[in-house]
Design a protein around this nucleic acid. Structure first.
Lengths: 215, 215
DNA sequence: CCTACCGATCGGTAGG
DNA sequence: CCTACCGATCGGTAGG
């Protein structure tokens, strides 16, 4: 059911939704640099030139703002990283596209502080609670997607039938994350290094007859 | 020059040094979970049952406390991760020991929030300033050590003469970091996965005649 | 190391 | 969405 079915004649809900969207748009930017704890209701309100209590009313608690920020970041991630890979047929090409689009997402600074989820999971990984749970779920979704793509490639005989799906996903994910951190620390060669690492790692498990998408 | 040369008759400096050490001991623990921004002078003072201004006097500014906390963590890291590996002769065995001792440092929770530096570099990687600079320096030291161990292994003919030293260091470091994060997120298999990844990666570049330290 | 204090900012509430 | 306010806590200072 689209929002406007519920909208009142004066457009209150539409404007409310726009404000909420604007808040979350700013929140994902700030949180990617300052962290989810670094989000401040007063500062966000100031950035958007609305009152603190007006902004607060949209969420009811800071933790709800943090959870909504994670959901907003997930939508952006799905659009920027996942969607481009799903346009490519299953196989080595899809895995390679996923890796390339992830590195591009980090390099282009879709979030100004690099990968939003890398920042947030390191912040909350050691602190039990709903925020950590949401980040664990997001990480699980991402790894499951990567594993699905690897499994597909095995089914179309582009990866060897004996490939360890979870192990390969762990290693590719490690290279991507490490490139993102290297970039934040100013290492200029981290993206080519991650790309080479992924390519060589896929080469090890690639079926002999499979076409190499990296040319 | 040891501290006690400068010590006054009433033991003020010695006691001051002990307090400072106690503060930093608590600070590295808290920061590994809450981050370096999560350090609070008031909370630390409360934990140690001293006054806030008394604690503050040791550092003069919160940023100085953060920098001192990084130096304290570096000392612990040197003892727990680096020292055990330097007891082993150069070669594959030293690289393997370094990797094992890093994973053990993460798994044993030498810092309660997992690797202190992983937490802190993700927190400050996107924020220019002296804290980020100190973390970049620490990361550079660590990678330089890893590269030195790889280069030594090549010189003693346990790694192939054509090994890409920086590439191999990037990949091993990625596996270690990824295991640490996985552990924080509750993945029970992350340490065996990282160990397998390091072993298989070293196998690729190992000289045919070299003894395998992983047995 | 202490007490006592500063202005600023925090998350959150009352009431509209 | 607003103004006006709450108690708590922040980093930091004065003065000893």
């Amino acid at each position: 059911m689209p929002d406007d079915v519920l909208e009142e004649a004066d457009g209150r809900l539409r404007r409310g939704g726009e404000t909420r969207r604007a808040v979350l748009g700013r929140a994902v930017e700030v949180a990617s640099i300052q962290g989810l704890d670094g989000l401040s209701i007063g500062q966000l309100a100031n950035d958007l030139a609305i009152s603190k209590s007006g902004l607060f009313a949209h969420f009811g608690a800071k933790e709800e703002l943090q959870l909504a920020t994670i959901r907003a970041a997930r939508r952006i991630y799905a659009d920027e990283v996942v969607a481009p890979a799903l346009l490519v047929p299953p196989g080595l090409g899809r895995i390679w596209t996923l890796s390339e689009s992830w590195l591009d997402y980090s390099r282009r600074r879709v979030f100004p502080g690099g990968c939003f989820f890398s920042r947030a999971t390191h912040e909350f990984g050691g602190r039990p609670g709903p925020v950590r749970d949401a980040l664990i779920a997001a990480n699980g979704e991402w790894l499951a997607l990567l594993e699905r793509c690897i499994d597909e490639a095995r089914q179309v005989d582009e990866l060897s039938s004996g490939v360890d799906v979870e192990q390969l996903a762990f290693e590719i994910n490690a290279f991507l994350e490490s490139a993102n951190l290297g970039s934040l620390l100013g290492q200029d060669d981290c993206y080519p290094r991650a790309r080479a690492a992924v390519r060589l790692r896929l080469e090890r498990d690639a079926a002999a007859a499979a076409v190499r998408p990296w040319g």
